[in-house]
Design a protein around this nucleic acid. Structure first.
Length: 647
RNA sequence: GCCGUUUUAGCUCAGUGGUAGAGCACUUCCUUGGUAAGGAAGAGGUCAUGGGUUCAAAUCCCAUAAAUGGCUCCA
């Protein structure tokens, strides 16, 4: 008999050789029916593989990430079987599960290919095969036999993979008429695969090596229920609708021009209104938190970057130096603001009493991203960081972290990102030599970050070995309205630059000490943040940020003068908006304003003019009734104040 | 950077080896209206750029540029 420990801690006894299925069946019939695999002492295995000894067991279903991965990996095999049936002689590479679905790398042979038009046939074949309820059968195979099998089959990629495998560890999985070299695990049989969708094809090199042959990678996803597939596709559609590149164009926020250059965004008037509002918002919060705004140039001399160490790092793969008529003189576009700020620190002797010194700048930097890396506003070649550098004493690190966390939390609250986690990146304790800075300072800073995060009650994950060579960091990851994760704000400790720039302060005992530098950017960059914000709110920005907060819509030309008065009054009150004086019917003006996602539409006609009121319509909600202009303004300002109130 | 796909009017997109198309937007006129599209007329394009094939290229071929999906998630 063996003892099986379940996740709730209870222990049950089973006969030797019992399987995960037996365990599931002993719990409930439903669980046995839905089980896809089993985790045995942390290792995911086939449900029907015998368990040899006492173990901790967790039954995996569709609700577990590991269960999904097993399901999708098995689906990749099913797709391979379908491809072999439809394209005889196709050569198979690898076919793993991925975050959403699976892929298989295949070689169709000379002159043959697949396009998305062929997907329907493959999907049909997969569903047909799945209905056979073929079992996924695991078999341990001696290496020699495995080699013979694939030599006969003529599959060079599998043979290549076998090269790297130890005899005795090789397993085959067979379902229906298809056998694959595979470590597993797999679901019991093909029948749960009820819905199939092939997503796209892409080229991929064998083993990711550019010099190897290019294979065709086919991506797909499967589900146990047709409804789940349609929900998944609906989510993809929703993401497409919210795509910041599409909304940015439709709402006239930003644009790109080939003449200006790839990855260099042009901020249009409405996008600029949004961006300046964000800047202003953070600027105010920072002034309250004791930051000192500074401004530095967009370029710096070669010497600056030799000192900072960026010169070595940003070589031939980056923007090239700017030359001057003066031989030998070279300038670089700044890839970050830190070196300039270090030079500001050095403009005069600093006392321990001056610290912390917090220098803030919305600094525009330029980095030459590879052309394939560019993506809308999230990955660009010129962008503006909401940067600041805090120069402080080692004993002040924790307090400064607490204060920065406050700012980040303020930003996340005002912009309605309730769901976020903080990632603490520490040194690799096994390999302390690759980091710069004293052991004592590292220990102190790491403790400071952890304590600060804990005191603020942040939901944290700690990653060892993820710290930069120059210091530990804290990154904020947010989850947006449709469940996607983004990395935004970052706080990093830096021991490197103070060293390189030989920064000092005079301590109370008149000794010279090295300050610690903290880099921090609550938004990350304005470009990236705006992109995430657009997708988060689907273009319906919080009222205080909206580039166009209201539109005055006169019913006809007769009320043009009154409409103008209303508009002027709102502009005086520092609301942003427009007056639609086109010769169109009111229905049309409302439709256009709704499409432009304008939060408030103010309709004015005969009765509004007579009574000095406005009829208010809220975007997406409809008619809110009428009220005096000043009442509307008060109401509006109350809403804005509530949203941007300090926490 | 590498591989695939794409590039036609301001936008979204049809189209074909033989005179360039639609809807929306824009301009003008009619219409003066009450909570998501009133009507008519008009203007607008070297079909991304540069080469080549052809009697003829926006269409076929090559190169370049940009956009886009991949190139990491190990049988």
């Amino acid at each position: 008999m063996i003892d099986i420990t379940l996740p709730d801690g209870s222990v049950r006894q089973f006969v030797d050789g019992a399987t995960g299925y037996d365990v599931a069946a002993s719990i409930s019939e439903g669980l046995a029916r839905n089980a896809l695999g089993v985790r045995v002492n942390g290792e995911v295995r086939d449900l029907h593989r015998p368990i040899e000894q006492n173990a901790n067991i967790e039954i995996l279903t569709w609700n577990d990430q590991a269960g999904k991965a097993t399901f999708w990996h098995s689906s990749a095999h099913l797709m391979a079987e379908a491809l072999e049936a439809l394209y005889p002689g196709v050569k198979l590479g690898i076919g793993p599960s991925i975050e959403n679905g699976f892929y298989y790398d295949v070689d169709f042979g000379e002159g043959r290919s697949i396009s998305s038009d062929d997907f329907v046939n493959v999907e049909k074949k997969m569903l047909e095969l799945a209905k056979n309820k073929s079992q996924y059968v695991r078999r341990e195979v001696p290496k020699a036999e495995a080699i013979t099998y694939f030599e006969e089959k003529g599959d060079p990629y599998k043979l290549d993979l076998l090269q790297g495998l130890e005899d005795g560890t090789i397993t085959f999985y067979t379902q229906g008429g298809f056998t694959d070299l595979c470590r597993g695990p797999h679901i019991p049989d093909t029948s749960p695969i009820k819905a199939v969708k092939l997503m796209n094809v892409a080229g991929a090199y064998w083993r990711g090596d550019e010099k190897s042959k290019q294979l065709t990678r086919i991506y797909g996803i499967t589900f146990p229920k047709a409804k789940e597939l349609s929900e998944y596709l609906e989510r993809l559609e929703e993401a497409k609708r919210r795509d910041h590149r599409k909304l940015g164009k439709e709402l006239e926020l930003f644009a790109f021009s080939d003449k200006v250059g790839a990855g260099l965004p042009l901020w249009l008037p409405k996008g600029t209104a949004l961006r300046e509002r964000l800047e202003q918002f953070l600027r105010r919060a920072q002034v309250k938190a004791g930051y000192l705004p500074v401004v530095t140039p967009h370029i710096g001399s070669k010497e600056l970057y030799v000192t900072s160490g960026h010169y070595e790092k940003y070589g031939a793969d980056s923007f090239q130096p700017i030359k001057t008529p003066n031989p030998g003189e070279e300038f670089f576009l700044k890839p970050m603001n830190c070196p300039h700020h270090c030079e500001i620190y050095k403009t005069k002797p600093r006392s321990y009493r001056d610290l912390p010194l917090r220098l803030a700048e919305f600094g525009t930097v330029y980095r030459y991203e590879q052309s394939g890396e560019l993506h809308g506003l999230t990955r660009v070649r010129g962008f503006t960081q909401d940067d600041a550098h805090i120069f402080c004493r080692p004993d002040q690190v924790k307090e400064e972290f607490l204060k920065v966390i406050d700012i980040v939390l303020y930003v996340l609250k005002a912009l309605d990102f309730p769901d976020f986690t903080a990632q603490i990146s520490l040194r690799d304790p096994e390999n302390k030599t690759k980091y710069i800075g004293s052991d004592e300072n590292w220990a102190r800073a790491e403790a400071a970050i952890q304590e600060a995060a804990q005191e603020k009650g942040l939901k944290t994950v700690t990653e060892l070995g993820e710290a930069a060579f120059y210091g530990p960091k804290l990154d904020f990851m947010v989850r947006d309205a449709i469940g996607r994760k983004w990395q935004l704000g970052t706080i990093q400790v830096d021991y490197n630059l103070p060293e390189r720039f030989d920064l000092e302060y005079v301590a109370s005992d008149n000794s010279r000490q090295r300050p610690v530098m903290i880099h921090r950017a609550p938004f990350g960059s304005l470009e990236r943040f705006v992109a995430v914000l657009i997708e988060h709110c689907g273009g319906n920005f919080p009222l205080w940020l909206s580039p166009e907060q209201f539109a005055v819509l006169p019913i006809s030309e007769k009320y043009q003068d009154y409409a103008q008065q209303v508009y002027d009054r709102l502009m005086q009150a520092e609301l942003r908006g427009s007056l639609d004086s086109r010769d169109e019917k009111i229905g049309r003006k409302i439709r256009d304003a709704e499409m432009a996602k304008v939060p408030y539409m103010l309709i004015v006609g005969e009765k509004e003019q007579e009574n000095g009121i406005v009829s208010v319509r809220r975007h997406g909600e409809g008619d809110m009734g009428s009220m005096p202009i000043d009442a509307f303004i008060r109401n509006f300002q109350d809403q804005v104040n509530e949203m941007t109130q300090a926490i």
